[in-house]
């Protein structure tokens, strides 16, 4: 067990080092930041000074070491476009993305589990069949089209909800939140649905399949024979046993929530890190791109590691396979 966890941590570190190298290579080989930061009117002295300031006059290996050292401390230098520390910009943008991801993840989980149980229990009803068909269309719709469709219905036609921005936010000592104002909450609704819809359909289909499987089991039949109410059987016995794979998949899906957040944030002009990243790609703002890359890889690798270790702890079959196969 311990050896397995240590090996996984070691592998994760290798992955992070590799990603770090990619991020650093971006710095060294892509474009000339001095060109981007100084305008048309510049002197040789300006260029020299800025190169020194950015540490670009050092040899390659020194730069790489300094990059790793700084990156470990969360320091990625100055943004080429805004001229401010990248860590500062990201810290400013992060609350927006975290709030959006949390709310949409919550929506997706509650909605997905609820609809999944509903469609599994009333398998042959008209409404569940309709939901299943709708979910198929939902899976093939590109995220940005869902966002545009929602904006068209609720902002343009009905005029109920805002189509862009976060509304009013309250500053809680460095953490800005939109949860405390009416306009902030209203602004959150459409982006959260857009971001959560795909995950919701995924969770719903998963829960439905698992539920149908579990409902056929002997212990469910036995619970029925004992005369327990349908409600107790469905929720206390059946649902509980479907949740382990659902939680695992949801955890692994966090990664794609981050990726889809870029799209959602662009459609709704949501001032989060996703929008920051896409603007950085458009303007080739390497420090921001590198910092974003490092940040999400730490997150992805961390999530994968936790899920793997949890799985290993929960499922005894994995342990046997490993020791026999000598993998």
């Amino acid at each position: 067990m311990l050896a397995y966890i240590l090996r996984r941590i070691f592998q994760s570190l290798i992955v992070l080092l590799a990603v770090g190298f990619v991020a650093f290579a971006m710095f060294s080989f892509v474009g000339d930041p001095v060109d981007n930061m100084l305008g048309q009117e510049r002197t040789q002295a300006d260029i020299e000074r800025l190169r020194e300031q950015l540490g670009l006059d050092q040899p390659f290996i020194v730069q790489y070491w300094r990059f790793l050292e700084q990156a470990a401390q969360g320091n990625f230098g100055l943004s080429y476009r805004q001229g401010r520390p990248v860590s500062e910009i990201i810290a400013e943008r992060l609350p927006a993305t975290v709030e959006l991801a949390l709310v949409s993840g919550f929506l997706a989980f509650i909605g997905g589990v609820g609809l999944g149980v509903f469609t599994a229990i009333r398998r042959h009803g008209l409404l569940p069949s309709f939901i299943m068909t709708a979910s198929l269309v939902g899976v093939s719709l590109p995220t940005f089209l869902i966002g545009i469709l929602l904006i068209y219905i609720f902002s343009v036609e009905l005029g109920w909800l805002p189509s862009f921005g976060r509304g009013e936010v309250v500053d809680l000592g460095g953490w800005t939140t939109g949860f405390l104002t009416a306009s902030g909450l209203k602004a959150l609704i459409l982006p959260a649905i857009t971001l959560g819809l795909y995950q919701m359909t995924l969770i719903m289909r998963l829960v439905r399949t698992e539920m149908l499987e579990v409902l056929r089991m002997d212990y469910i039949r036995f619970a029925r024979a004992r005369g327990l109410t349908e409600k107790t059987i469905n929720f206390r016995h059946a649902l509980k046993n479907t949740l382990v794979p659902v939680i695992t998949i949801t955890g692994l899906q966090l990664g794609s929530i981050i990726a889809f957040a870029i799209i959602t944030e662009t459609v709704f002009q949501w001032p989060g890190v996703g929008l920051l990243f896409i603007n950085a790609v458009q303007f080739v703002d390497i420090p921001v791109m590198a910092a974003y890359l490092m940040m999400i890889s730490v997150m992805f690798v961390g999530i994968n590691l936790i899920v793997d270790v949890l799985y290993f702890a929960i499922d005894p079959r994995l342990r046997i396979e490993r020791s026999v196969g000598g993998h």
Binding site: I263, V281, I286, M289, I296, F300
Partner: peptide
Amino acid sequence: TFPSILVAMLIFGIAKG
């Protein structure tokens, strides 16, 4: 480990640079 759309964006950004 990374969503492919993210990888594509990154490659696009580097190539643009």
